[in-house]
Design a protein around this nucleic acid. Sequence first.
DNA 1: CTGAAAGCGCTTACAG
DNA 2: CTGAAAGCGCTTACAG
Lengths: 329, 329
Amino acid sequence: MARITSKDVAREAGVSQTTVSFVLNDRSDQTIPPETRQAVLAAAQRLGYVPFAAARTLRSGRSNVVLCVQPDFPIAQAFEEFKITLSQVLGESGYACLFVHSAGSSKPLAELWAHVQPAVVVAFGALPTPDAEPVRRAGIALLDNIFEPENRIVTGLDQRAVGRMQVQHLVEQGHERIGFGAGADPRERAFYEPRLLGATDACRELGLDPPITVPVQYSTESARSAVETWTRDSRVTAVAAFNDLVALAILAACRSDGVLVPDDLAIIGVDNLLAGSMTGPALTTIAINLTVPARSLSAKILEVAGAAAAVPAGWDRQPILTLVPRETT
Amino acid sequence: MARITSKDVAREAGVSQTTVSFVLNDRSDQTIPPETRQAVLAAAQRLGYVPFAAARTLRSGRSNVVLCVQPDFPIAQAFEEFKITLSQVLGESGYACLFVHSAGSSKPLAELWAHVQPAVVVAFGALPTPDAEPVRRAGIALLDNIFEPENRIVTGLDQRAVGRMQVQHLVEQGHERIGFGAGADPRERAFYEPRLLGATDACRELGLDPPITVPVQYSTESARSAVETWTRDSRVTAVAAFNDLVALAILAACRSDGVLVPDDLAIIGVDNLLAGSMTGPALTTIAINLTVPARSLSAKILEVAGAAAAVPAGWDRQPILTLVPRETT
DNA sequence: CTGAAAGCGCTTACAG
DNA sequence: CTGAAAGCGCTTACAG
């Protein structure tokens, strides 16, 4: 079955292909009488015409695809929400939001840019040089390292504020010796490093010693030696975990070692995982509303893509970080 | 900076564009002398030539993109692993694997097919008719409802086997009155319905009454009334939860109501979430190795795309489902 | 074995 | 206000 082309629409409407193009692209620099415009629109509708993007891309050298490169390891579930919001907002502005897993191509991603000549490439992490180079060379806008502190203007979210908020809460509860449960996986460094930085800043500002930091793996075993360090050697009374999973591991270690939570050791996590609300005692945590950063990033993407942002006003007034006090502090 | 085209390569190699195309596409129906072939390859290499996919797509009417439509709600984290494996295997066969969130376009996805004229469209759930129709009409291969029981040949994974395995384990532990904790979110029906079916089958085969099924939301509160139903009214001694999150909710409800696990009520989940290994008592669960279904699906995709599968042999011998016995059974 | 030429469907100077 | 024509970069009959 043959594809329906703009030529077909032109014939159906009794005009030229040029006119069809002008009408369908709503070119403001052309004056089209309403009747002609209606005729074209009606014909396109009747035939079910969908412009063939490959041809348009070939012609213009650029598609309206936004390509998002995801890290190869599973990240917090809350992140799904982020991607969904991003897709929605960009979708409303006529951009398709596609996600790739960077591990997808053993060879560098190079050829993928060619496949979908995107308008913008967004990398949540750092795009390795062999991948970034061809993007740059092709003149494609690249938004890199979205969640790094130095890019906080892009997402409106500074990870340091997370660690800062944790410490503030713990200190308000009367704690003076703070521990920090960092991640052990270098791929998650982009999250735990700035959060630790923020926690350290907050301690200093509040006149406390910097947090006693221990890397914790996602296992009770690993968390046990961390808990030992905190309670025995350093007399730490409260721990900020860089995420809920680490907090859960610490909580499990306390349970198995008879350390009372929150009496002997208070714990606060980050992410507001469902699982954290269902432990005993229930986990105090910080919820991150990723909807706001997603809208913020969308606006930036549309800006570099040279499109008018269709982002509704007021969204940036919503709070990103919310303390969820439960039973572990 | 101008794009490097096959014409440039032809000039550099001193041959025609036709020859360049033949060499670069490795056309077996053409005989090219080794020297010519080398010259072309060297020239392409030297210039850093990357074929412009839009032109190729325009010409052939089809790209080598596989488009995967994801559900709009966050699903199990293990799923990420599935997508990564899928990307890798398809990547090795020269296909780019892109993911979209179906909520992305308020209008039907229709225009997206046009954007990236994919070779195959894969929908993890059901693709609504207004979206499926244009795909079919465009003659694009569509793989739908990947995880439904009737498609178990595609993934090699029958969700019913999951529920079956849960019941078998519980019965081996001596239980005779089985409960089933289903999901409450209709969007997850594709997972809990077949699992319940499998559990019911297993009960019948083992001469037991069908499981007492209660929908459970992801909250301790919701799980409490479920636990009441099971322990008070029905004398159920063991519950199969459709996933770990429901199992965790049930565990939390037991904790708060003084129901002893596993003595009063045994619990088994599905997914092997990290959080489940860190509760007290630690959750017995079923781990799903999604690597195998991902490879299986890849093979199917490559088949419908008309490509030779580069799937290594032996992968289908690995077990998909593994019982992870811990402390709740 | 190799090349000149056509054509995929679109947009856009350019000419009326 | 509208249309004929060129050209984006590729592949493939077709002719030598």
